[in-house]
């Protein structure tokens, strides 16, 4: 019984939250890695792209809620608004590409120039998002809150420890799986996806075989917009939406992409989960779990928490550093320009 209780506590406080968070990071890191693979620069505006997409979704959700909608059955209304958010973000990033990045492509500028340009884009998107929705926390979730609540779980199983599985967590995992399956189907099975991979592997050869670079770039941005908006909305539903938090997500997302190997989509997903599980695992106080497992009289005194939750950035950073030092191309082999 104690063993089961310990397992349920671990599931409830570490495994489920980390899986949901990992799925959100993986979607974000996929966006970063795709841009890196096709456009060959690290996009510092990615966090703010996520914030923009989420903002549009929130505004639409509020509109729908004002019309009297309260979730699509058990699911949040935000899902209905998601396509609108993706479309708006798609327009924004393609517009940005036309106005900013395309010029540097024709100039064949160095990657670092793109990065600086993306800083400018970051400022602008930051300004737009804050201008429209402000800097405060926004909640926009509705529908059923729990798939299983701690109370029902206790009644069902008779265990001391409760297990809560929130709709937003289940939704995150389900949507992330669908998005990843769609993405890989697209990259591996369709003609356009194949041309994207070819372009990423060898630009010159791809140009030689008649692939239109502008089309590849445009489709990349569209996919990135979809991924970023989805990741942002899922994160917002799971936690809450605050522009500055989204900007700060940049660090774990980059860490995930680099740990997995920049430019490698499978690596980005893996990296997302590595970062999420380490972050949650290192900052979780294991006292409860150990107390269940330890024989009587051996209960731990301290919290058994390796690091306080405020240092979660240090975790992503530490992993990043270790990977950079021992395996600079990432776990799965990424590009190294």
């Amino acid at each position: 019984m104690d063993f089961l209780n310990a397992f349920v506590a671990l599931l409830n406080f570490v495994i489920i939250p980390a899986t949901a968070y990992g799925a959100q990071l993986a979607l974000g890191a996929l966006g970063v890695t795709l841009i890196y693979g096709i456009l060959r620069f690290s996009n510092f505006a990615h966090g703010d792209t996520m914030a923009f997409g989420t903002m549009v979704v929130i505004l639409c959700t509020w509109g729908l809620q004002a019309l009297g909608m309260d979730g699509i059955g058990p699911l949040p209304t935000a899902l209905l608004a998601l396509p609108v958010g993706i479309a708006a973000t798609g327009l924004l990033v393609i517009g940005t590409d036309r106005a900013v990045y395309r010029f540097y492509r024709t100039q064949k500028a160095k990657p670092v120039i793109y990065v600086i340009a993306s800083l400018g884009v970051m400022f602008i998107m930051n300004g737009i998002v804050r201008f429209i929705i402000g800097v405060d926390d926004q909640r926009f979730g509705d529908g059923e809150r729990f798939i299983i609540s701690a109370r029902t779980f206790r009644e069902m199983t008779g265990l001391e420890e409760g297990l809560a599985f929130r709709t937003s967590q289940g939704l995150t995992i389900a949507v992330a799986v669908i998005a990843v399956v769609l993405l890989f189907w697209f990259l591996n099975r369709t003609r356009t996806g194949k041309s994207m991979r070819a372009f990423s592997d060898n630009e010159d050869l791809a140009l030689l075989s008649g692939i239109n670079p502008e089309r590849v770039v445009m489709i990349t941005w569209l996919i990135v917009a979809a991924l970023a908006t989805t990741a942002g909305v899922l994160y917002g539903l799971d936690k809450s939406f605050k522009p500055f938090t989204y900007f700060q997500l940049l660090l774990p997302i980059f860490a995930a992409a680099i740990v997995g190997g920049l430019g490698n989509p499978v690596g980005a997903i893996l990296g997302g989960f590595v970062i999420a599980f380490s972050e949650v695992g290192v900052t979780y106080a294991f006292r409860k779990v150990v107390t269940y497992l330890a024989p009587g009289g051996w209960e731990p005194e301290g919290l058994l928490q390796l690091l306080s939750t405020d240092y979660k950035f240090a975790v992503s950073f530490g992993i990043l550093l270790i990977v950079l030092l021992f395996r600079p191309t990432g776990i799965m082999k990424g590009k190294s320009v």
């Binding site: 990657p111 990065v115 660090l251 980059f254 680099i258 240090a314 992503s316 950073f317 990043l320």
Partner: peptide, 15 residues
């Protein structure tokens, strides 16, 4: 690579 220095410095400043 230059991007890695960027991410590493971004991280250390947050820490």
């Amino acid at each position: 690579r230059s991007d890695y220095l960027a991410i590493a410095t971004l991280g250390i400043s947050e820490i």
